[in-house]
């Protein structure tokens, strides 16, 4: 759906993008993560056809972004970071206005359908100026899918919202996937990304650092850290025994649970089990720590 290679964009005083590569496949939700100022919005602006890259190739749905005459030539819906509407139009009027644009006209019932989908049916005759941030954001998503594009580019759709608003928006994004749409969205709230994305790309100082599916990422970033829950209170003796065993890096006790950090390697679980058996320790459970996206993000961005 989106293929970006060697994308560069420089402004007067700094280079926002320094050769970015990006690949979004048909039908997936792609999370675009990065610190503020890493170049997320710049990239999305270019992809939406609103600004021109300094150099590099951008293909969106098979169309070269540099070839288009106007932004709407691309089959995509774009939601800017802070969508601005005319405060003196109502939600219904806004969508009617945006819906009628010569080239792609919408069906008569479409606006009502979209308003209901976005949960704005009750407030459709209210002026947009009186809307809350979350309602504006939902209206923004509504206007992005108004023309039923195959691809949606959402810039920070959930970042500035309260928990309820975020939940609503994430729910809508999940709904988009069920409609068979491809979604590229950016965020710096990693929890949101974890909740809805199939694949993520981490961007740092204008370059793509990592691009992987969330599942692969979890797998490859599993750390050899185990939480072992013991039946009884852990004695100091037992801790010493475990700590001195081969393959164990460090241990830490939190009441019944001992956190054991092992040396890297695929067989670390077997080694751990062996140690436990050797020391005759009764356990209730062993679980391997799942890495949070935050850990991965920090590791990748700081590992540069």
């Amino acid at each position: 759906m989106i293929e970006v290679e060697g994308l560069k964009k420089s402004f007067k005083h700094f280079e926002a993008l320094q050769g970015l590569n990006l690949n979004v496949r048909q039908g997936e939700i792609y999370g675009f993560i990065g610190k503020n100022g890493a170049g997320k919005s710049t990239t999305m602006n270019i992809l939406a056809g609103l600004s021109k890259p300094t150099s590099g190739e951008c293909l969106v749905g098979g169309i070269k972004v540099s070839d288009i005459i106007q932004a709407s030539d691309l089959d995509l819906g774009y939601l800017p970071e802070d969508p601005k509407f005319y405060p003196w139009l109502s939600a219904c009027e806004t969508l009617t206005y945006l819906g009628d644009s010569g080239t792609h006209r919408i069906k008569p019932g479409r606006i009502q359908e979209i308003l209901e989908w976005g949960g704005l049916d009750k407030d459709k005759h209210r002026r947009v100026g009186t809307f809350s941030r979350g309602m504006k954001q939902r209206l923004g998503i509504c206007s992005a899918i108004l023309h039923d594009p195959g691809l949606l580019i959402l810039d920070e759709p959930s970042s500035a919202l309260d928990p309820q608003g975020r939940n609503d928006v994430l729910h809508l994004i999940k709904g988009l996937k069920d409609m068979g749409k491809t979604v590229l969205f950016s965020s710096h709230i990693l929890n949101d990304v974890e909740r809805v994305c199939d694949r993520i790309g981490i961007i740092a100082s204008g370059r793509m650092v990592l691009e992987k599916s969330l599942k692969d990422l979890e797998h490859s970033h599993l750390q050899p850290v185990y939480d072992v829950t013991f039946e009884e209170k852990i004695t100091e003796e037992a801790q010493k025994c475990i700590k001195s065993s081969i393959g164990v890096l460090s241990t830490e006790i939190k009441e019944q649970v001992m956190v054991i950090k092992m040396e890297d390697g695929h067989e670390s679980i077997l080694t751990l089990m062996q140690i436990l058996i050797d020391n005759n320790l009764k356990i209730v459970g062993v679980s391997r720590r799942k890495p949070t996206l935050e850990d991965i993000f920090i590791k990748e961005v700081h590992g540069l």
Binding site: Q70, A71, G77, P83, K84, F85, A144, H147
Partner: peptide, 9 residues
Amino acid sequence: VLPICSGKK
């Protein structure tokens, strides 16, 4: 921005 994105000339 939004009008331009939705195809307004």
